[in-house]
Structure formats: C-alpha cells, structure tokens
Design a protein around this nucleic acid. Structure first.
Lengths: 347, 347
DNA sequence: CTATGTAATGTAAACCATTACATAACGTGC
DNA sequence: GCACGTTATGTAATGGTTTACATTACATAG
C-alpha cells in the first residue's frame, strides 16, 4: 500500500507538498498539484486515516447510537444525521445498543479511544462514564448530543418534539372521535420519553373531564410483542375501553393484531392511535392513525448541534423542540365524516 | 487526555511495560501490573485506537453494508455479525448505501484508508474499486464477504440460502393450497437474488405443469410501496391470479393492503406468500406466510468468513449455503385443514 | 543592485502506541 | 565464583500523516 512518501518521490516533491495538495490545495501551484494527482492516480494512493486522525487528534467521525436498528422510526433520523455529516466532511457510524448498558459503553469507549469525535444518543441509556461524571467525578466530558430522549440531570445539546403535547393531542383526537374510556399502552417506565407521553395522555383526559381508571395505563416496552400482550390485557378490562393510545406505532401494530384475533374491530370497537408514523403504519389494517415526528429534521438538527459542540462554540447548550403532526388514518376514524380521512395538519 | 507516557511516569515503569499490561498481561509481573492498572484508573486513560491501529496496520473493525437499514430483514444479520465480531475483539460499523454507488464507494474508501479492515456486503452493488479490478485493473483486493447477494463475475467468500429452491418451495406451497394461476412480484432485475427467486417461481410452475402467462411476472423494487403498486396491476390481470408470490415480505405487505383496499380477501381471493420473515410479517392482517431466512446464522457465518479471510487463511474461497424454512400462516391457507396452520418445518 | 515582501516548497518534529532487541536481575548447577 | 537460562523490564525505532518553521525563488520598490 502506497504512502505519502511514495507519492512524494514519484511526483518529485516533498511529503509536505503532497499533504497540502489534499488539505490546502490553494497553497500548491497548479502544475505541482497536477503532478501529485497523477502520482496518486498511478499508485492508487489513499491517505491513511489513522495516521491523519492521530496527528490531528480527531477523526471527523460521529457515532449514532440507536436502541434498535430494527425500529423503522430511527431510520429517518439516521438519514438526517448522515446528510448533514457528509456535507461537513464527517463520517457516520451506527451503533445498536439493544438498550444494554454494556453495549452503549462499548461505543462510548470508541470516543475515548478517539475512533470517533462524539456521540449522538437516541436511546434512554447514558454512558456509564457520563453518569459517573454527573455524580461528581471529574474528567473531560465527551461530546454528546441527545435526540428524542432527555435526562433530567444532564444538560447537553438536545433535539426532540414536545412529547407531552403531542400525546395530549393524540388523545384529544380520540376524544373528538367520541371515545370516552381511553386506555394507553406506555413505553417502559424510567424513560422520560414514555413518561412525557403518559403525562400528555393524563392531561388530555383531565382537560376533557374524563376518568382514568386504575388499570387503564399499561406498561409496554415499545416492541410489537408487548403491544400485542398489553392489548390482550386491555381486552379483559372492565369497563372495556373504547379508545387506545399506544406510545409508539410498533406496539399499536401488535395491538391491532390482538384486536383482530379477538374478533373485534377497529375503529368500531376500539379507536386506535400510535406514535412515530413508521413506514408500516400506513400499510397495516386498518391504516394506523399516529403522530408523525419530523425524523429527518431531528437527525439534521442533532448533527448540526454536534458540529457546533465540536467546534467548541462556547458552552451555550442548545435545546431544540421541533413540530410534530397528527396523522389521521382509518384506525381512529369513528363518527367523523369520511372527508376527514387521510392526513390532517396538526391543530 | 492522558497518554501511555503519563501512565508510565505515574506507575514508575516504562511505556513498554504499560503497553504489555494491556496486550500481553502474562509478560508482566502481577504487582507491576497492578501499579499500572491503578495509574490507568487514576488518570482515566484509554489507549488511542488510532495510534494503535497505525502501528499494527489494522483496526480490528469491519463495516457491514446494507442497502436500507429500515428493512427489518437486515437487523438479524447485523446482530449475527456483531456477536461473532465482539467475541473476536472486532468492532462493527454499519453503512447504509440506499443502493447508491456513490455511498457504497464512500464506505469502501474507509477500508482503503484503513479505518476498517474489511467489508461485509449485503446489497446488490459492488464497490467501484472492485468492479474495476474485475475488468483487469491491478491493485490489492480489499477483504470482502458477500452475504445474500452473489455476483457472477466475482469469486469471494459468500453466504446465503438457496434462493431458487426456497422460492420454488414457496410456490409449490401455493400450488398445494389449490392455486392454479400464480403471479409473482419480483425484485429489481439485474439483481441475482431477484433472478434466483424468479427462476424458482418458474421452475415450480413448470414442475406442476402450470402456465406462466405474459404479465404474470411483475417487477417491484423490494419496497412496500412497489408491492402496493404491483398488486394494483395484478388486480387488473385477466385471467385474475389466485395466488401471488412476493419476492420479499415488504412488498407482500404492500400487496395485502392493495387487496384489502380493493375489497377482496386473503386468502379467499388470493393466497399470498412473501419471503424473509421480517418481524412484522406475523402481525399484518392476515398474518403472512413466508420463507424464513436464518438471519442470525447468515450474519455469524459472514463474520466468520471475514475472520478467516483476514487471517490470510490461504485463498480457498468458502461459499456457504444455509437452510431456509417455509413458514405457513393464514395468508396462504386455503383448502387446508386448520390444524395445519402455524409454522411448519421445511419439507 | 540591495532590501523587502510574497509565494511555493522543504525539513523535521510532533501525534501515541507497539515491539524487536538490549539489558538487568535473579536463580541454579557445577 | 562463574556460566548459563529465565524472567521482567527498558530503549528506541517504527507506523503515516500534518504542520510550524525554515528555506528558497522570484518580483517589486527604492
């Protein structure tokens, strides 16, 4: 494998000139540049990113951490991150934690060992290194941007939608469709995102003067399977709910299946609404009403925050709240006129 | 950020000893080791992976390239790769190409620039560098393992199922359910994987002495949307098919929706079978029959092949074919007895 | 013709870890 | 008391790039 020295020799210049041809072309005479480029092409040279990163003390790489790559919701976010990253000469690596601390720490270690410059976090876990520092440990904080999830104790750049408000709107929509007994399948507790959504659910019920009986809040874990299981539990509730707010689309899809299997119908017996607007939401039966998150924009913003952070733009921690959108499909359409079907803008 | 020199000073030993404490602990006396470890803990040292990689001329990292991270089918494969990788001290990076050459080359460049040691390829694209070399160019071949897809011109380590045979089985299953006019929605042409599956479809029809009229083979692109659109086209066919083989589950899900929208029923009007057994297949209405690929095993095998390749186990290109499984759910169950529902083992 | 400035290029010191080789410490056997 | 082997540790070269600083070439002004 050719090195910069081989190129220098071949082009009859010094290594510094070769290096400059790449990183500061304007500092090199056009015809010298051309000679260098020819040598590069002839020898098939490609700069060693390890050596470069070592010298520059940065790798121009960020790691995006998602709990589950399988969850289609994250795909849009990742795409947003990549767009902005590429435009700024950054590489993007993807890490899946499966919500296991050990796996997250493994990726966090890649920042400590300089493989990546920073971490964009999408799950509900925090690197052990960070948690420890919060409890008074010292040490260099690693560049961190939070997307979606927030952590009460930690102030750092953050982008998300207003989950509580969005959940509240979703539930109000069910109420508007005539539902009077509305249950929810929440995400795992201890997760601010779940808690915000559940809070929105409670607020909507309170605002409408509707009760929230014991047992109407069921805890899932954001997986299709848990949605299915929790829906089975909902079917046994007395009085039986007539509307269900699932804290994400995956669980809602599991729920739809459980309802179908029980021989009941949506939206006839239950109006159902999810959250996220994943790609499959439109294709299940009946098509799923949901809250659309601006995934691309979330990702783009997250990466932009990371760039600011890395360029040491002094402290000033940005926190961005983006708009969401209520998407009404058949799963929640009861008394309403047919013309109201399809997508409706928020508010 | 502390370096190995700081640790050496703090522990009162040489840098060599510190280095050995990490990589060859048995070569260091227990109490020295302990002193080093204490220094490491006190200073929060983490070895610079760039310097290490530079020196060792390898990064112990592989990149897994998928066309679309959104496709749930790839998740299992990635997980398999990661399991074996971690067990062997390798890091895994994920790249999404969106089936664009430019993006693939971007990741391939990371191998040339030594950020990663090799590429595990899951799409139908080949890095430009490789294609060129196939056409007679010279240069060092980059370590490459193909999963799922194969390339006629290229011999390199490869793992997949027998797509033709699996597709053939799927179609025979439809025939066994009484279907006599079976259409298929294939993947994009020019893709060996699509072509193998279509070949399997043709073979099954031929074996059963059934016709394959013009227009019964529709070309999709593996997306839900294309499944929906192609199914709309199928609905207009005359004579109308009574069974459909979709070349993947995503398209099948789109197809189910189109059928539902047209007021027709599955499996009554159409028996439907997909391919892959993605996570959502079980939860659509009706649950989707399909061919299950052993995703975890594919991933594990791919990574194992990569390790062999990297350890320069001389040439000998391994090609592994794994077993698939026919999974029968409601979408294809017509005349059969109810007891046959659920999963059935292959053959 | 000299002084001064500018542009293009070169030299060599970083960056941080690994590792071949050298050295030191210590024990064993004679 | 010496030769030798074994084990633990140290010294310094090495990997490939970037970049501060030094040098050179050349033009312009005085």
């Amino acid at each position: 494998m050719a090195t910069i020295i081989d190129i220098a020799r071949r082009a009859g210049v010094s290594v510094a000139t070769v290096s400059r041809t790449f990183s500061h072309p304007d500092k090199v005479q056009a015809k010298t540049r051309e000679r260098v480029n020819r040598a590069v092409a002839e020898l098939g040279y490609s700069p060693n990113a390890l050596a470069r990163g070592l010298r520059q003390m940065r790798s121009r790489t960020v790691i995006v951490i998602v709990p589950w790559i399988q969850n289609p919701f994250f795909a849009g976010i990742i795409q947003g991150v990549e767009n902005v990253a590429h435009d700024n000469g950054f590489k993007v690596l993807l890490g899946e934690t499966q919500e296991r601390q050990e796996r997250l720490d493994y990726y966090a270690a890649m920042v400590s060992s300089r493989i990546a410059d920073g971490l964009i976090l999408l799950g509900s876990l925090l690197p052990a290194e960070i948690s420890q520092r919060l409890e008074g440990g010292g040490g260099q904080p690693m560049p961190l941007v939070l997307a979606c999830e927030r952590f009460a104790e930690l102030t750092c750049p953050h982008v998300a939608i207003d989950n509580e408000r969005a959940a509240c709107e979703a539930v109000h929509h069910l109420i508007g469709q005539g539902c009077r007994r509305i249950a929810t399948v929440s995400g795992p507790s201890g997760n601010t995102l779940s808690e915000d959504r559940t809070a929105g659910y409670r607020r909507a019920l309170a605002e409408a003067g509707l009760p929230c009986p014991d047992g109407y809040i069921l805890e899932g874990d954001f997986s299709v399977e848990s949605g299915y299981r929790m829906m089975e539990a909902v079917l046994k509730l007395d009085p039986r709910p007539d509307g269900i707010f699932f804290a994400n689309d995956e669980m809602a899809i599991g729920g739809l299946r459980a309802i179908g299997k029980a021989g009941l119908s949506v939206p006839g017996d239950f109006a159902v609404i999810g959250f996220d607007d994943i790609r499959f939401a439109e294709y299940v039966t009946p098509p799923l009403s949901t809250i659309r998150q601006p995934t691309g924009e979330i990702g783009e913003t997250a990466m932009r925050l990371m760039l600011e952070h890395l360029n040491a733009t002094p402290a000033e921690v940005s926190q961005v709240i983006l708009d969401h959108q209520l998407v009404v499909r058949e799963s929640s359409l009861r008394g309403a006129l047919p013309s109201q079907a399809g997508q409706a803008d928020k508010q």
